[in-house]
């Protein structure tokens, strides 16, 4: 490809961490910077949590000491991004990486485009573990076995309940927030199951969501099978327990989106997909950095934003 455009830094992912990196780099006067977002809007996961009457605010904004809707938090972040002068590519995905020449191939509405960069910040976020990845959840492959992402998609974008009698698999903060959203918008009180003996969410987190939901908790389950034809009817555990429901929501246990790092030949642990990190959130080759939930574990949106801001320091030092 001819006339490749050159950027000092490419940020992959336009969620809170990617925005944080863009803001941090702008503060240090690093440019030009390109931010590549595969969806049609920046803001990432919190953007899907719309502010609506009767809804449940689930994002902690520590700096203001309160809990807000994701959309509000993401909106403030995108405003800061707009002031940075970062080049933003929406609906655009990195499809190839040539690590030796630091070249990325992008696919977007205009077609294919190659860019050359000096450094890359991977801020690709995370996704929820699939039933197969869990290893203890098997059975029928029916409709309405989805993720928290689908709860927000159906409820906040379309006002549709993904299940009337939901079974939530998982018990962390994400699971409680999904249960609360479902209840607030008219589902029955969810059943919540997990292999853990007691819920993963802390006492205070559970206390916060008690206003909306008091899930019917079953801990310490062994292996579980989904039963039903076309749609789920119930879940059955190998030690004889049974839970009725018309939809299964798989929550939490995030898997980092480290596929691009693997493609670029970075060191990634398998099968956990965790990045092998050095100081300053550097990946195994120079000039590659990571920020936000792609680092592994589960972090709030504001943590990811500040983490993105701070990785900018390492990037600037490298450059």
């Amino acid at each position: 490809m001819n006339n490749e455009v050159h950027f000092k830094v490419a940020i992959i992912g336009g969620g809170p961490a990617g925005i944080g990196a863009a803001v941090g780099l702008a503060k240090r006067g690093v440019g030009p910077v390109i931010l590549i977002e595969r969806r049609g809007e920046v803001g990432g996961t919190p953007m899907g949590y719309r502010k609506k009457p009767g809804g449940v605010p689930t994002f902690v904004e520590w700096t203001r000491g309160r809990v807000v809707f994701g959309e509000e938090l993401a909106g403030r972040l995108t405003k800061r991004l707009a002031q940075t002068g970062t080049t933003i590519r929406l609906s655009t995905q990195v499809t190839k990486i040539y690590p030796a020449e630091k070249r990325l191939t992008l696919l977007g509405p205009e077609g294919l485009e190659d860019i050359l960069v000096d450094a890359v910040v991977l801020a690709a976020g995370a996704r929820e573990q699939t039933p197969a990845e869990k290893g203890w959840l098997a059975g029928a492959r029916t409709a309405r076995v989805g993720f928290t992402r689908h709860v927000t998609g159906w409820l906040d974008r379309h006002g549709l309940l993904p299940a009337r009698k939901p079974i939530v698999v998982g018990s962390d903060l994400i699971a409680y927030s999904a249960a609360a959203k479902l209840c607030a918008l008219g589902s029955d009180e969810p059943v919540m199951i997990d292999q853990r003996r007691s819920p993963e969410a802390s006492f205070f987190e559970r206390l916060f969501f008690r206003r909306w939901t008091r899930p019917d908790w079953s801990g310490g389950v062994s292996t579980v099978e989904i039963k039903g034809h076309g749609s789920p009817t119930h879940l059955e555990s190998s030690n004889g327990r049974e839970w009725q429901g018309d939809g299964v929501i798989i929550c939490g246990q995030l898997v980092p989106n480290t596929e691009l790092a693997l493609m670029a030949g970075m060191a990634v642990d398998l099968p956990s997909r965790q990045l092998q990190l050095a100081r300053g959130q550097t990946l195994s080759q120079p000039g590659w950095f990571a920020a936000g939930n792609v680092l592994g574990g589960f972090h709030g949106a504001q943590w990811c934003y500040f983490n993105g801001c701070s990785v900018a320091r390492s990037v600037a030092r490298f450059l």
Binding site: A143, R144, D156, H158, L160, L161, P162, A163, G230, D246
Partner: peptide, 23 residues
């Protein structure tokens, strides 16, 4: 919409879209 035909709706069946909620 369904996964594989009637009986496998993607959302709980029998709901009408509330137009004011569609963004």
């Amino acid at each position: 919409l369904t996964n594989n035909g009637p009986g496998s709706e993607l959302v709980a069946p029998g709901q009408a879209v509330r137009p004011e909620e569609v963004s």
